[in-house]
Each structure stands twice: as structure tokens, then as C-alpha cells.
Amino acid sequence: MPRMRFSKTGNAVWISHLDLMRALQRGFRRAGVLLKHSQGFTPHPVLSIALPLSVGVSSDYEIADFELDAPTDLAALPARLNAALPKGIEILECYEDGEKLKHLKWLEARLTLIYDAGVPAQAADQIRTLFARPSLEVEKHGKNGPVTVDILPMLHAYSVTQPDETTLALTATVSAQNPTLNPLLLLTAIEAELPACKPDFTRCHRIQIMNEAFHAFR
């Protein structure tokens, strides 16, 4: 099954997962490439996106699998699709024989913490100390109401830097599936445990996804 890698940036970050599916399906039609449709009463185009992004999160590494109605030159497909997609969605490559999705294991994300009045003193160190604890319980919304999880076993690596007066950059590699850690839970932990380090606003960006061996997932 052919696979595409794409980015979702700018105002496109506000497009929800379901709407993104629709946007991609329409992009294919506009590009004159018909997706294969499922059989049955209401045929659906065969297209699925791995690891749906939360609304508002940008990404340079999104993966979607699809099937085409007729053979098409995959190398030429990104350019054709990009001419037909809304601003902010860019197909980076299309290829065959991608890795099995079950090998998708890690996700590298960057949280940009913005402090309007300047980064609080020692904030970076406090965050490092926080993630160095033996365990870190965070409350998250589960299917049956709030549940508490220890996020640290799912946090493989992280770094905290301060690029300027008002910004902290927290880059983290977290478990993408089985189990899944939403990188935004790192922010939840900071806000709960270090109220003085609560940022005024945070941007979240997915840098890449990786297999079990920490290689970029193909």
C-alpha cells in the first residue's frame, strides 16, 4: 500500500483529523488521481492517517496510507497533490513498501513554552528536576473520566533549552503507541507540579516519528 509523508503547519493546524481526511481525499480528486474505494453500501476512499494529531498541533512528520484506483507515478505525486491542497498541508514524499505500522514506536515533539514576562528564574532546571523524579503522576482525561498515569516510563529522552528571554523549548521523545503519551501531558505535569513555571502559551510541534530502533519511521 502506498504511503505518504506530509507536514501540517500554519493555519492548517486548526484542521481536525476528520476534516484533514476530507481535505486529503479532495486533494487527490483535484489532482486527478482517484483513490480506491471500499466495497459496500457507502463506498469510502481508502486512506488512513497514522497517529492523528490534536487540533492546534503542527507537524513535520505525518504518515498516511492510501490505495489508488489505477497505477500512478508516486515520485510525481507530491507535486501534483501540493498544487491541489489547502495552504499548510504539504506532501513531502510518496513511496511503496513502508514499514509496518506496528513498528511505529517513538515520537519526537517540541513544546515551545512562552512566558510573556520572561522565563522565570531556574525554570529550565526545575523542569529537568521534575522529569528526573522516580515517577510523575499526571491526571488525564480517559474514556471513562479522569485517570492518573505515571508519564515517566513513556518519556524516553528530553532536553530543555532557552532560545530567548521569553521562551523555553522542551524537546522530548515519548512513546507513540502501546502505550501512548500525548506530549502535551508534559505541559500538564509542569502546570500541576510547578505552578510558577506555568507558561502563558504553549505551541506543540511534532518533529518526527520513529521505529523501535529510533530510526525515522518510513
Binding site: W14, D19, R30, P86
Partner: peptide, 19 residues
């Protein structure tokens, strides 16, 4: 605006940029 959007329902309807 960027700070407001995460807090509202269906933010995509406020930013334009459609095909």
C-alpha cells in the same frame, strides 16, 4: 488570535486559508 483558537470550538472556521 493564536492564543484564543485552542480554546474555541471548531477553530478552523476562523482562520480562512481554504482552497
Amino acid at each position: 488570535l493564536e492564543r484564543i483558537l485552542p480554546r474555541v470550538q471548531k477553530p478552523a472556521r476562523y482562520v480562512g486559508g481554504e482552497y
